[in-house]
Design a protein around this nucleic acid. Structure first.
Length: 425
RNA sequence: GCCGGGGUGGGGUAAUGGUCAUCCUUUGGCCUUGUGGAGGCCAAGACCCGGGUUCGAUUCUCGGUCCCGGCCCCA
């Protein structure tokens, strides 16, 4: 009976794991350099956790089931609710601002396609307890640093907006909740729709022709993320939208300090699907425009309170591994897929006592060492050493040991030298 | 949930309604029991699963499944 992995789930073999390890190492180190602390959350949560604030569609796409105790549970489809839950339960003890990150596996029950699987890794970064535009900018600047450290330069673009812009417009139209949600969705998709399709959608959701015109104009008002562009973006009488734009202008000034403004665009069509976002929202795309979003996030200032905590502002984002890998591979920045070995210890003759000690000595020094345990012939051992990519082979053999020596062979050049065995013990 | 294209040894491929299948690579062994990554020889290893048509199916057909991609949706 032979088995295969489940649909949308991946097996990772050593070569690929070595590459992924390098990528995650970079993510860890950049996160730490920005003062984020690593946390971890369960992989299984109560389904209710997502029913409160994530949105209906999200819950439909969860990998969920009833457990043996009759509880409705789900493999975690996103991390933000778990982190918010964790934050609430320790809220009193935590020094604010709290900066947490995690690199969890997440699951969603969907049809796999390019850049989307049922099990994926999604690093998450969140800041709790600061309401300022400076915090928004720090998070966006961090995201920029992350991609830069991974080797990307101008292959990506950060699109930033504020929920309040679109909401300020739409609340004036007096739509019911469902129609409003559909309007947001249509705006979110505007890039992929033709003007006529977008107009049709908006009309279908109850907007008047002049209202449709307003939205169409708003959607085309994007541009550089500069105060000048932002200032002229909103030209309707909406306090909400005006405040949102003022907030974005502040964010723009902050981002300029990080010198990342060139990678940022104002894009009012960025809405985000999650119901919990309340302020600035952003997504990162490849400049070519052929991939899904590299990452996405924003401000969610009411989720902590909804989860029973004291009102606490928060901002963060998540970055899926599949699309990130696609972009890094396309940019030739995905790491080499190879494992490394510093020393292979060959055993020739009846010398296992010494060979084991040589291996132990090298390992104590911190080297990556493989010791022959097969007992196969010398030629085969060398071939294997070559095959697994050993930099050096230490040949522990009876003949050399009579002189108290071992032979160290540089596998790249083939050069050999005799070394007193004591040096390795 | 819907739609399109695919599935041949571990990886990559070829051909085919009929001596159960090609080549490269891989793996094991030998030439060579202390010098490899070269070469030669030998060996191992596959038609996604199930039903149907047929004397006979890897090939045709239907269903399933998985992969790739698209729609819906998108954390």
């Amino acid at each position: 009976m032979e088995f295969e992995s489940l649909k949308g789930f991946r097996d990772f073999y050593p070569g690929e794991m070595a590459a992924r390890r390098r990528v995650w190492d970079t993510v860890h180190s950049v996160a730490r350099s920005y003062g984020f602390q690593e946390v971890n959350a369960p992989s299984l949560e109560s389904l209710e956790l997502y029913e409160v604030k994530s949105g209906e569609e999200i819950v439909e796409e969860t990998y969920s089931f009833e457990d043996k105790g009759g509880r409705d549970v789900t493999m975690t489809p996103e991390l933000t609710p778990s982190l918010a839950r964790m934050f609430v339960s320790r809220q009193q003890a935590l020094a604010k601002p709290v900066k947490w990150y995690s690199i969890p596996k997440l699951w969603r029950y969907e049809q796999p396609q390019s850049g989307r699987l049922r099990e994926f890794v999604q690093p998450n970064f969140d800041v709790y307890g600061v309401e300022s535009a400076a915090a928004d900018a720090e998070v966006v600047a961090f995201a920029h640093a992350l991609l830069t450290e991974l080797g990307l330069t101008d292959e990506f673009e950060l699109r930033i907006s504020h929920r309040g812009v679109v909401e300020g417009y739409v609340e004036r139209y007096g739509l019911d909740e469902d129609d409003a949600a559909d309007v947001y969705r249509a705006i979110d998709k505007s890039e992929r729709l033709s003007d006529d399709e977008l107009r049709g959608q908006l009309r279908a959701n109850g907007l008047q022709p002049e209202e449709v015109d307003e939205i169409m104009e708003l959607c085309s008002s994007g541009g550089a993320f500069t105060p000048e562009v932002l200032e002229s973006a909103v030209d309707v009488d909406s306090e909400r939208a005006t405040e949102a734009v003022e907030r974005l202008m502040e964010t723009s000034k902050e981002l300029e300090r990080y010198d990342v403004l060139d990678s940022c665009r104002f894009d009012p069509s960025i809405v985000r699907g999650m119901d919990y976002y309340t302020g600035v929202v952003f997504e990162c795309f490849d400049v070519e425009g052929s991939l899904r979003a590299i990452f996405g996030g924003g401000r969610y200032d009411s989720l902590v309170e909804e989860f029973g905590g004291q009102a606490t502002p928060a901002v963060g984002f998540g970055m899926g591994d599949a699309t990130l890998q696609q972009l890094l591979e396309r940019s030739d920045e995905w790491p080499e897929e190879s494992a490394t070995l510093d020393y292979y210890v060959a055993v020739v003759g009846d010398v296992r006592d010494t060979a084991v000690n040589v291996a132990r000595g090298l390992r104590r020094e911190g080297f990556v060492v493989e010791l022959d345990v097969t007992g196969r012939g010398f030629g085969d051992q060398l071939e294997h050493a070559d095959r697994v990519g050993a930099d050096n082979t230490v040949i522990v053999g009876e003949r050399d040991l009579e002189q108290g020596e071992v032979t160290v062979k540089d596998m790249e050049t083939g050069d050999q030298r005799q070394v007193p065995v004591e040096e390795f013990l």
